[in-house]
Write a protein that binds this DNA or RNA. Structure first.
Lengths: 187, 187
DNA sequence: TTCATTATATAACATTTGTTATATAATTAT
DNA sequence: ATAATTATATAACAAATGTTATATAATGAA
């Protein structure tokens, strides 16, 4: 009963994603999505009640991509993997990264709070971090989250010279991790 | 020759600033500024050719306020002063800070490039930093700029728990500075 | 085959915003 | 005092956008 569906919910989100990736989530409009799909706005309103609902779904997709990047970085140390994934996200999706940090930080916050306890557990198994109290581990993690965020923002905002590539940034990240850990060791 | 001027360029920028402070630069409109001043849009168009020109002037005012905060933090160590000023800016003007970092990072970049050499010179006079090569000083400065940015973004984005106050953040900043310097000392 | 359903297209409407044309009135030069 | 100047107000226009009403046509059920 009814014609075949030509435009799915997923296609709509994908189209929105491509626009957001290039222009930011603020520049995603119903008509732009429709134009990119070669449709009118009608199929969009069948799948989403409003533009807000659509943007909400889009933000979730963006967050999912962040997760996917983390899953791809798999060196066995989740601590370092998340750092690298964050920097990759900031470099490859700089516009979206800025959107996420600037206007949807609740996603970062929520993710942080969800992952932190697991990271602390991972840190306890790390031989480099043996003998530290739980509080000390938390302090180290906090400092590294802060550094990682600063580095990601710099990469996404073009504040850093273009000379820095992915390797330079991850080296900087691990060098600073060493600094923080070494200094904690000596106290 | 003509009626008295009731709305100056400065008043216009001030009104725009208050709107931007609360709602972000994207939400500054001609009509909102006019309404806040109790005028029509006419006086604005006498002083600015377009909304873009006005926003440009607004961004400059925002950057000026950043400068002013730095000037107010005067402990003799520009290195630390800038860090504290950045955090204060992020906390007191969180919406504007995010605007500046995420959409107008060229201002930060330009400021950075202008101030970096002077900061390096200051670092050379710092007794805590005696004996380091110029390259080593640059690395330390870079790491601290990154950490400071991350901390400011966290403060501005509400990613950090509300428990952290200005003192906690500056303590965290100087503790990490110690980490980086100590670690550099040991290499 | 015929008809109900519904995915899609089109077009209209309301709102917001930048911008401009026109009118008004206050001030100053003469 | 009169006239020119101009700061301001008002209103209109155009463009962009979200949203909705209506029309069209494709599909499956009867």
């Amino acid at each position: 009963m009814g014609p075949k569906i030509k435009f799915t919910r997923e296609q709509i989100i994908d189209a929105a994603f491509e626009i957001a990736r290039a222009e930011g989530t603020d520049n995603v409009t119903m008509r732009k999505i429709a134009h990119r799909m070669g449709s009118s706005v009608a199929p969009i309103y069948v799948n989403f009640k409003s533009i807000n609902e659509l943007i909400e779904a889009l933000i979730e997709k963006i967050a999912d991509i962040g997760q996917q990047l983390i899953a791809e970085e798999n060196t066995g140390s989740p601590f370092a993997d998340i750092g690298r994934a964050s920097i990759r996200f900031a470099m490859e999706y700089s516009v979206l990264f800025r959107d996420l940090v600037m206007k949807n930080s609740r996603y970062l916050k929520g993710y942080d709070e969800k992952v932190m306890p697991a990271l602390i557990e991972e840190m306890k198994k790390d031989s480099d971090l043996e003998g530290f109290s739980e509080d000390k581990l938390k302090e180290i993690l906090l400092k590294m989250r802060i550094f990682q965020l600063g580095l990601s923002v710099m990469a996404a905002s073009g504040i850093l010279s273009k000379d820095y590539d992915m390797k330079d940034l991850t080296d900087l990240l691990s060098s600073t991790a060493d600094d923080v850990i070494l200094s904690a060791r000596l106290k």
